[in-house]
């Protein structure tokens, strides 16, 4: 096989990322205004208040979404906020339940008392609107098959008026539906932890106030981890992201130097 320039670019990327992961290190990041706003919002919730967390992502983005979700869950559990987990994507169901259970265990939180996972409901718009009318009718049972009425934490939780806010953990555009239907129709406060690629998509919603707060990408996860004072995989992965970004910049410059040189030679 003939080695081409793209193969060298692939090998180079793999080498720099692997070295960065092996070297490790935790950067000292200055938290952005977005991360601080989210941190203040979660910190302002009274212990015992109920927050709905929606795992609106697929398994493919777990390396980026996982640290974001864990940072949020750690902060919420440490503040005594009660969490109701749901998922608008089937794949987010298994991940959401496991993340809540693992993180809940770190803070001695009890399933059914401090947190609960209701699971997946197909057709996201229908699920969001239906929960606005009645959560118990939308989810007669939780993910583990317990009846809604038998779960102590859910006593008195009828619809969004009994929930302090929704936090959507998303790698795509599903958070938009929370804002367009949950916020616009039922007035629920929507915040989000999103993949870096989605940050610019949600910026107009954040600026207009339709979204209350947003934290994005691995950098957002690392910043949030530093704000809550708990180390996590966001900070650990930041060095790998940094070298990958710098590597891409070097490739862009290199590609353009070659392009302009070849153009110059062609003119001659």
């Amino acid at each position: 096989m003939k080695i081409e320039s793209r193969h060298l670019a692939f090998i180079g990327l793999a080498v720099v990322v692997v070295i960065a992961m092996l070297v490790g290190g935790r950067p000292d990041l200055t938290p952005s205004a977005d991360s601080v706003r989210m941190h203040e919002y979660i910190a302002s919730l009274a212990p015992g208040s109920v927050v709905m967390v929606s795992f609106d992502h697929e398994a493919s983005s777990l390396p980026e979404i996982g640290p974001l979700a864990k940072a949020f869950l750690r902060h919420a559990f440490s503040r005594g906020v009660k969490l109701v987990g749901v998922s608008l994507l089937a794949e987010g169901t298994g991940i959401g339940y496991r993340l809540m259970e693992e993180t809940g265990r770190e803070y001695d939180c009890e399933y059914g008392k401090d947190f609960v996972f209701l699971g997946f409901k197909p057709q996201w718009v229908a699920a969001i609107v239906a929960m606005g009318e009645s959560i118990s009718k939308t989810y007669p049972e939780d993910y583990l098959g317990n009846t809604y009425q038998d779960i102590p934490m859910l006593a008195g939780v009828v619809n969004y008026s009994d929930v302090a806010g929704v936090v959507s953990i998303a790698d795509g555009s599903l958070t938009t539906h929370w804002m367009e239907y949950g916020h616009a129709r039922y007035g629920i406060t929507v915040s989000a932890f999103v993949a870096a690629a989605m940050v610019t998509t949600y910026d107009p919603y954040l600026a207009s106030g339709q979204m209350h707060a947003m934290v994005g990408g691995l950098r957002g996860a690392a910043e949030y981890e530093s704000l809550i004072g708990v180390g996590g995989s966001g900070g650990r992965a930041m060095l790998a992201q940094t070298v990958a970004h710098l590597y891409v910049i070097v490739l862009i410059i290199l590609g353009n130097v070659v392009y302009f040189r070849s153009r110059h030679t062609g003119r001659k």
Binding site: A9, L251, I252
Partner: peptide, 17 residues
Amino acid sequence: QSTVFALLAFFVASASL
């Protein structure tokens, strides 16, 4: 799925060059 998604980084590297 994470592996398939991570392949995007290699496409970006190739496109950058």
